[in-house]
Amino acid sequence: MSPITLTEDAASARVDLHNLAALVEAGSRVLDVGCGDGSLLRLLAEKRGVDARGIELSQSGVNECVAKGLSVIQGDADTDLVYYPDASFDYVILSQTLQAMRKPRDVIDHMLRIGRRAIVSFPNFGHWKIRLQILTTGRMPVTENLAYSWYETPNIHFCTINDFIDLCDEMGAQIEYASALDRFGMPVETRLPRLFWNLFGEQAVFVLSRKI
């Protein structure tokens, strides 16, 4: 086997990807749902020695991934997760894609079925800027991270950190780790109570498992 060298792409990967990657045990099996151009997968494969697989909806994304040598299939998370057997991965990751799912709850359900753990990151709709925009303008918020107008946004199922925690309770999912991130993907002060996370976190990351 040739030694694995870290490519420039992986070295300069975004901070939030590094933070996600740090949650994954080295050498494990990972499925990245909605893997885009494969940046996270590649980072996981090269830095963490992970057996990394992906699903991506767009042809251009899949082609980029395959050209990078990643095992990625063209598919739709809303319909295709059903084809994966139970407990076939250590982690199933859904990075910044939850809000674009037609049935987010079903997707999380499948993630917990397919993986030992599910890692979900999403933009927090409870952030104070968003609350302030609705309060002051009376219009659907448009922010740097959520740059679409309401009529053309692919993000059809926004939630807040509190909403997500409620859903986890309802689904019987165990929250093994949670973190709120600022706009740069850096963790918000973790000693603050969760009330503050929901105000100051632009994004959130949760590691879930099924309650036994």
């Binding site: 057996d51 697989r53 042809q59 899949v62 082609n63 991934c65 395959v66 990643l70 095992s71 990625v72 299939i73 063209q74 598919g75 295709d80 084809y83 994966y84 057997p85 076939s88």
Partner: peptide, 14 residues
Amino acid sequence: VHALNAAGASVSFV
């Protein structure tokens, strides 16, 4: 592809 997934095989699909 679905069969390969179910078998846990390494598969890309374009």
